[in-house]
């Protein structure tokens, strides 16, 4: 049972800063290892340590930051960057939409604008799992540990990476892709439609990569074309009936 529930206007409201802080600790610890990897990748891609930390503190999103890394390091086209981030982070729109139904009416526009900055998959998942509505104190508490875990993990990952010898740094080039596989393979193993969507997306990406003419299209746009086609077809052929955990 929730200890910190109060009743206001007949509805349950979770609004304890301390409870939020406590719920945020496991998320923050989980973030350490992912952001540590991001810090290492960022330095391997050529960013200085401070830039890696800045990217983490301003974005607070794993997939988007990893995807944006090559474009940041190469100072690539900002239209490509905008589209890549838009596509890969589109799911947050749904989460924010869903979270907006869950907020107590005392959470005003300014609070919503601040909370949105840290609405990650995990924070959304924990906030949604609470019974009744959630208040701003709980949310600010919940956000604190994950945010600093994310920034601190990036810092130590980036700092550790700068001390590594060149041959190890070059082997780190594959790490980001290894991580992507670790994200997509477990759900693909348990839920067949995810596997089909991934394989179709990969097939399209191979066609673009190896076909003369198509090969010249920039990588960021290819990813968008592949992902939108595969996810669109997946949504048409295998509609998901209940909200699954998106990771």
């Amino acid at each position: 049972m929730e200890k910190e529930m109060n009743t206001a206007a007949g509805k349950l409201v979770v609004n304890s800063f301390r409870l939020g802080l406590k719920d945020g600790v496991p998320i923050g610890l989980g973030y350490l290892s992912v952001s540590f990897t991001f810090g290492m990748m960022a330095v391997a891609a050529g960013l200085p340590v401070w830039a890696a930390v800045l990217v983490s503190m301003l974005n607070v999103t794993s997939a988007g930051q990893f995807a944006g890394l090559p474009l940041l390091a190469a100072s690539g086209s900002c239209i490509e960057m905008a589209l890549t981030q838009f596509i890969i982070n589109m799911r947050y729109a749904l989460m924010s939409l869903s979270l907006s139904q869950k907020l107590h009416r005392s959470v005003n526009l300014l609070d919503r604008i601040l909370i949105a900055f840290c609405n990650t998959d995990e924070i959304f998942a924990v906030a949604s799992s609470k019974k009744g509505e959630v208040g701003k104190r709980y949310l600010y508490g919940l956000i604190l540990m994950p945010y600093f875990g994310w920034a601190f993990g990036t810092l130590i990952g980036a700092a550790a990476s700068s001390l590594l010898p060149a041959i190890v740094q070059s082997a780190l080039g594959i790490a980001i892709y290894g991580m992507f596989l670790a994200i997509i393979i477990p759900p693909a193993k348990h839920f067949r439609p995810v596997l089909k969507v991934v394989l179709f997306s990969v097939l399209l990406s191979c066609i673009f990569r190896f076909t003369p003419g198509l090969r010249e299209i920039s990588g960021g746009f290819v990813i968008i074309i592949c992902a939108v086609s595969a996810a669109g077809l997946g949504a048409f052929c295998f509609p998901v009936h209940r909200e699954r955990e998106v990771g």
Binding site: P193, I223, A235
Partner: peptide, 28 residues
């Protein structure tokens, strides 16, 4: 339902396209 499903599949589709075949050219 289509939009919900589309948003559900998007991260996997994006990461799949980003990973392969690029992973094969990520080292020396």
């Amino acid at each position: 339902e289509w939009i919900q499903s589309f948003l559900y599949y998007i991260p996997y589709a994006v990461l799949g396209a980003m990973t392969f075949p690029e992973i094969l050219f990520s080292t020396d």
